[in-house]
């Protein structure tokens, strides 16, 4: 009597659920990029955005969620994203360090030397 007749509290997890999580992370990352004045904070926003995108690739490539999934392509692309994110972080940190060396701060609003 307590068996399967009870409507499950949680619906079975589908690709959509993953996509929604990915979307939330993406938007948080984007807002983070927009609102932080700290160069490292912006970098963290970018990481969140890339991560949100990665979740989508993984979800579409997952054999557990769909029959006609992307298969390995999803995982491969997310691998490339991770690698490129690492590369991007290296460059961005170098820029931040250089910026700090020149301005003694990592507040990007101070990077206004090109202003006419």
């Amino acid at each position: 009597m307590f068996g399967l007749e009870i409507t499950p509290v949680i619906a079975a997890i589908t690709v959509s659920h993953y996509l929604i999580v990915g979307a939330i992370l993406f938007v948080i990352g984007a807002v983070c990029m927009a609102t932080k004045r700290n160069a490292l904070g912006i970098l963290m926003g970018i990481e969140l955005v890339l991560n949100g995108a990665n979740i989508n690739f993984i979800a579409f490539g997952s054999p557990y969620l769909r029959d006609d999934n992307l298969g390995l392509d999803g995982q491969l692309i997310s691998l490339f994203v991770i690698v490129l994110a690492a590369a991007e972080a290296a460059v961005a940190l170098a820029i931040a360090l250089n910026f700090y060396n020149n301005h003694n701060t990592i507040d990007i609003d101070r990077a206004d030397e090109l202003k006419g």
């Binding site: 079975a12 959509s16 996509l19 939330i24 938007v27 984007a30 807002v31 769909r66």
Partner: peptide, 30 residues
């Protein structure tokens, strides 16, 4: 917040909008 919220609504709408993505039977079967 406004821009992000709009984007979120848009993305969630898109994510939840495709029927085959919401097909729980596929995942149950898998």
């Amino acid at each position: 917040t406004i821009v992000g919220g709009s984007l979120l609504v848009l993305l969630i709408g898109a994510a939840a909008g495709v029927d085959s993505w919401k097909d729980a039977s596929a995942s149950k079967k898998a």
